[in-house]
């Protein structure tokens, strides 16, 4: 035992008490520690530090300094946090982003569940439906933006043209704030409702057949079956869906950037768009760092609240 221990150069617990080593050999073998295992973790520690921890700490570092140039910087304490949290433009963007996320959740969750309920449960149409529904999820974000930028145009886009010329509603997302908002919202619903639908569909598929049989025996209507059997059993997947869709929509950047560029005016200027303007456009790294940290904190808090509420209500 001790021989084996010294051979591998590890720390052998049994070796600490030589008189008992003989009797306790089997137990000691289980307790043997090999500290060389730490080396196996090292690549992960290094790469995570390099890609996440150090950049994050850099952000923290920037957030408390006024940086004029890489060599010329002043410690300013929490000044940037104060500035950012009082900035009317940031506050307006926060309200806008919250409103957007709220609308996204209110539209995508019910729509996704409805889609999942009507999707076929068996037969050849299952795969057809799955592929069709999953299609928008396979398209890259910026391509989704490009598709909708063109689709919603009044002159050459099918969607925009139809609204203007067939429905007779004047629609121009480059000029009208409401139209721009609707375009971005509908685009997000088109892009991400399928995710909710697929999650909900998986949840529905996992309900054993006897539950539906019992509902028939008990004379439950289709609505009662949905309300009392399907919906309660979707709690888990819907919690995930709400969290994913909240985080994603609260941090939405690429699509509105491509479609509207945040405009017209500030109409679709969400937090992320404003942040990148400050950070990359104006290169105000101090305020941008403070902004990022606050942004991060808000997402965390909301997710925590959603998660707690959704899981608690089930008990």
């Amino acid at each position: 035992m001790t021989v084996a221990g010294s051979q591998v150069g590890g720390e052998v617990v049994a070796a600490q008490e030589p008189p008992q080593a003989e009797e306790e050999a089997p137990r000691a073998a289980l307790k043997r520690k090999d500290n060389r295992a730490w080396w196996l973790v090292l690549p992960v520690v290094v790469s995570v530090a390099f890609t996440a921890v150090i950049p994050l700490m850099t952000v923290v570092n920037f957030s408390v300094q006024d940086v004029f140039s890489p060599v010329d910087r002043v410690f300013v304490g929490l000044e940037w946090f104060r500035t950012i949290s009082r900035d009317p433009e940031v506050r307006a963007a926060l309200v806008r982003t919250l409103l957007f996320s709220l609308q996204v959740l209110l539209l995508e969750i019910p729509l996704g569940v409805a889609l999942a309920v009507v999707m076929p449960r068996r037969g050849v149409w299952v795969s057809v439906a799955l592929v069709l529904v999953a299609l928008p999820l396979l398209i890259p974000w910026n391509v989704v933006g490009t598709i909708w930028q063109i689709f919603a145009r009044g002159d050459i886009g099918l969607g925009g043209w139809t609204v203007n010329n067939v429905l007779g509603i004047n629609f121009n997302y480059t000029l009208d704030s409401t139209d721009a908002w609707i375009t971005v919202l509908v685009m997000d619903v088109w892009h991400w409702t399928p995710l909710v639908a697929l999650l909900a569909y998986a949840g529905l598929r996992s309900i054993p057949e006897p539950y539906f049989q019992a509902a028939q025996i008990d004379g439950a209507s289709a609505w009662a079956t949905f309300r009392h059997i399907q919906l309660p059993r979707l709690r888990g997947v819907l919690t995930i869906a709400v969290l994913l869709r909240f985080m994603d929509s609260f941090m939405i950047y690429t699509e509105p950037f491509v479609v509207t560029g945040g405009g017209p005016g500030n109409a679709t200027s969400f937090l992320s768009i404003l942040l990148s303007k400050i950070a990359v456009g104006q290169f105000d790294v101090g305020p941008a760092a403070a902004f990022s940290l606050l942004y991060f904190l808000i997402v965390q808090v909301f997710c925590y609240v959603f998660f707690t509420v959704l899981t608690r209500s089930g008990r």
Binding site: P210, Y211, Q213, A214, Q216, G219, H228, P232, R233
Partner: peptide
């Protein structure tokens, strides 16, 4: 269909309306 037959059936494993109270479960049919 089953709904129109006035048959009660109990399955091998418990099938409950899980978020309902026991009272509501019994009252459901």
């Amino acid at each position: 269909p089953t709904r129109g037959r006035d048959i009660a059936q109990v399955f091998q494993f418990p099938v409950l309306y899980e978020e309902m109270s026991v009272y509501d479960n019994l009252a459901f049919p």
